[in-house]
Design a protein around this nucleic acid. Structure first.
Lengths: 146, 146
DNA sequence: ATATATGCAAAACTTTTGCATACAA
DNA sequence: TTGTATGCAAAAGTTTTGCATATAT
């Protein structure tokens, strides 16, 4: 936790932003949750002690700083998850029934990532479009809902 | 256009829904546009003659009928595009600067799709999760914005 | 004839913004 | 001390809903 705080403080400093109570609280919520959270869940986890305006502002700040990552599963709201160094690039498996979100690791999607890298290179060559990021989400029915 | 209308009428009939003026108008807008549209664009294209309530209801109906496909590029609103038989499964290339959306065809992402199919099979075997659909979007900077 | 679709208005929900005050550096 | 963050309230934007009327089958 402490080294995470130092790391985040450093990233914030890059753009002259500060480590504050509200942001520390946010980090704790995400560390405890260990999964992508929507604003309502965050408010609930913080016992409603955080006003939404600061919440949204801090989510944006922490995303810009590369501390959080913004996720959109087309649920009508946006989710966020921790994106610090220990969290590698990965994709999600979303159950359409219970909305559970599971991370997929490199082992599972390694071949897909490799194919994507090649395709992205081809896209740059053929269309002059530089791909900077990709989002891949798999939806379906999980074991317990089936 | 006519055979499309018959096709859509058929799909609607499956769930006891009707082909109406409003839905026909929607189809025409999408046919003319040939690209994913947000609600605001649809309203504009229809000269503001369509109330939003019917619009949203019809978008939902046409999605359920498999006539439209719902897309979310995390722009704060949702887009829709035609999904009739002539429109095969594909993915999107979105420019982060000008928000232009380009379709990617099977030729470009064929290898990726193949790898994905294998990964989805593996996911079913290993976790009992049945993948029903996937969404893959590539974001970056297009040639004219670069 | 009858169930479904439409149109209008109002509401629900997520997210953004203005501004005075509190706080981190 | 100085600029940034916070908290409150209000606004903005998208999407949903209720209900009476019109329409497709």
């Amino acid at each position: 936790m402490d080294e995470l705080l130092r790391e985040v403080r450093g990233r914030l400093a890059v753009t002259d932003q500060r480590m504050t109570r509200g942001r520390r609280a946010l980090l704790e919520v995400f560390l405890r949750a260990g999964r992508p959270l929507g604003v309502r869940e965050i408010v609930a986890a913080a016992d409603g002690t955080v006003p939404q305006s600061s919440l949204y502002r801090n989510l944006a700040v922490l995303c810009d700083a590369g501390v959080l990552r913004r996720l959109n599963f087309d649920e009508g709201f946006v989710r966020y998850e921790l994106d610090h160094e220990m969290t590698e690039h990965h994709h999600h498996l979303v159950c359409s029934r219970c909305n559970a979100v599971v991370d997929l690791d490199e082992r599972t999607l390694g071949t897909v990532e490799a194919a994507l890298a090649k395709a992205e290179a081809a896209i740059r060559r053929s269309r002059g479009f530089t791909v900077e990021e990709h989002q891949l989400d798999l939806r379906g029915v999980c074991r317990s809902c089936a």
